[in-house]
């Protein structure tokens, strides 16, 4: 899968590139409106990550340009201007998702994969990890053909960690993704720990060959045993 990152901030670009390359994506980058127009004119991409705050032209205009020139693949808008107008304009134009800065690398990864799964694989993909089979559409988890009973949030936690397997998922990234903006206070991290503990117990009892490891004070990492 080929991804184009259009982002003017150099370090931001590097971070995003590194993260996505770790997931075996083919990543190219563009720094300016002009460069983006040139690149998209020549190559095809499965997904474009577009920063709408480009210095030499509004990112939304670039998006319009892309659509006019027949770009039909996935596009995620990235913006430091987390404003409702941008979000609505972008989604109205047909962006697949909207990612406000600052975001966690795990979140970027999850969003990219979710959009690609939806658009490229019609959402029908069953994720196999260790001896688990996860169906994201139907929220079902099977371990060796035995269904693992999980509530909605437990499923979300597990799926998010699986999407980011072998990667560090910080506690706040997990909290924001699963519980939304409502639980963003640091003193709720004990709460996340307790949710993880429940999930671990269920996985262990069902004989899953994956493990959720704690990474110091930062977060968790799902590894295949």
């Amino acid at each position: 899968m080929k991804i184009l990152i259009i982002e003017d901030e150099k370090e931001m670009r590097r971070n995003m590139r590194e993260t996505l390359e770790k997931e075996q994506f083919l990543v190219e980058t563009a720094e300016t409106y002009k460069e983006a127009v040139n690149r998209t004119g020549v190559y095809n991409y499965d997904l474009i990550l577009l920063d709408i705050g480009l210095p030499d032209g509004n990112g939304l205009k670039l998006f319009e340009h892309l659509k006019k020139n027949g770009y039909t693949d996935s596009l995620i808008i990235v913006s430091a201007k987390d404003s409702l107008d941008d979000r609505i304009n972008g989604l109205n134009l047909g962006a697949d998702d909207y990612l406000p800065k600052p975001f966690h690398m795990a979140e970027l990864n999850a969003r990219v994969k979710a959009v690609l799964r939806r658009n490229k694989l019609d959402g029908a993909q069953v994720l196999e990890i260790g001896n688990l089979k996860i169906n994201p559409e139907r929220h079902l988890v099977h371990i060796e053909d035995q269904e693992l009973e999980l509530n909605r949030k437990e499923f979300d936690v597990l799926f998010y960690l699986c999407t980011n397997k072998n990667r560090l998922v910080s506690k706040s990234a997990l909290a924001e993704h699963v519980w939304g903006d409502y639980i963003d206070q640091a003193d709720n991290f004990d709460f996340i720990y307790s949710q993880i503990k429940n999930l671990r117990k269920k996985l262990a009892e069902a004989g899953a060959t994956i493990e959720i490891k704690a990474v110091y004070g930062i977060g968790y990492k799902l590894v295949i045993l």
């Binding site: 971070n15 430091a80 795990a106 910080s170 110091y216």
Partner: peptide, 18 residues
């Protein structure tokens, strides 16, 4: 304006920890 530098810093540290 603070969003981007914050994003860069957090992401760098996340990658570093990873």
């Amino acid at each position: 304006e603070l969003q981007t530098p914050l994003a860069v810093s957090i992401n760098k540290l996340e990658l570093m920890a990873e």
